[in-house]
Simulated scan of single mutants.
Amino acid sequence: MTFNRDTVIPPNEHVRLCGMHWLRAHRYGSADNGTELVALQWNPGSKTWTHSNSHDTNAETIDTSGWEYVSAIPWPEI
């Protein structure tokens, strides 16, 4: 398996839409080995990942270099 060394971006039409997505973070090191799923919000205007509900323009962006895109999280049925 090859890992993306660049920042992960959502595929297809998702790249233009603000939404929640599952990403797989690869953790390798002396303290923690393996992977974990992380839900992040894609912000198409700034092309950045943040934690959900980060409307603050100074919100901390997440570096997804080396992470893997998994899937979009669908909106719930109302």
Rank of each mutant, 00 (worst) to 15 (best):
H51M: 11
L23Y: 00
K47R: 13
I73Y: 08
P10W: 01
S71I: 04
T64R: 00
V15K: 12
A31D: 12
S54F: 02
A25V: 05
Y28E: 07
N43A: 05
H14R: 10
W49Q: 01
E36C: 14
A31E: 12
E68S: 14
N33P: 05
S65E: 12
I78T: 11
V38N: 04
H21G: 01
N33S: 12
P11L: 09
T2D: 07
N43Q: 15
E68P: 03
S71N: 10
L40I: 10
H21I: 00
D32L: 12
H26V: 06
Q41C: 15
L37T: 11
L23E: 00
I9M: 03
A31W: 09
M1V: 13
N12A: 13
T64D: 00
G19W: 01
M20V: 13
E36R: 14
N4K: 05
E60F: 09
S46G: 05
A25K: 13
E13I: 09
G19D: 04
I73G: 05
H26A: 08
P74N: 10
I9C: 11
I78L: 12
W75S: 08
Q41Y: 04
L23N: 02
D63F: 10
H26S: 02
M1A: 10
L40N: 03
H26W: 09
S30C: 08
C18V: 10
N53A: 06
N12C: 08
L17P: 03
D6S: 14
L37N: 11
R24M: 13
T57F: 01
P74F: 02
W42A: 00
R24T: 03
V8Q: 03
A39T: 11
H51F: 12
T50I: 09
W75I: 13
T50R: 05
Y69Q: 04
T61Q: 04
W75C: 13
P74D: 13
L40R: 01
H26T: 05
A31V: 14
D56Y: 07
Q41H: 07
W22I: 07
L37S: 15
S65N: 08
A25P: 00
H21P: 02
W42S: 01
V8W: 03
T48S: 15
A25S: 13
G34L: 04
K47Q: 14
V15P: 02
N43I: 09
K47E: 11
D63I: 09
H21V: 00
T61Y: 02
A25M: 11
D56S: 06
V8P: 01
C18L: 11
E13Q: 10
T61C: 05
H55E: 05
H14M: 07
C18E: 14
D32S: 12
E36N: 14
W49S: 03
V38A: 08
S65T: 15
Y28C: 15
I9Y: 05
I73P: 04
P11D: 06
H51V: 07
A39W: 06
Q41A: 12
G19R: 01
I78Y: 09
H26P: 00
L23C: 02
L23I: 00
E77V: 14
Y28H: 10
R24K: 15
M20G: 02
M20I: 14
W75A: 10
N53L: 11
T50A: 10
P76G: 07
W49Y: 07
Y28F: 12
P76N: 08
T57S: 12
S52V: 07
Q41P: 03
Y69D: 03
R27S: 15
P10Y: 03
P44C: 04
E36W: 08
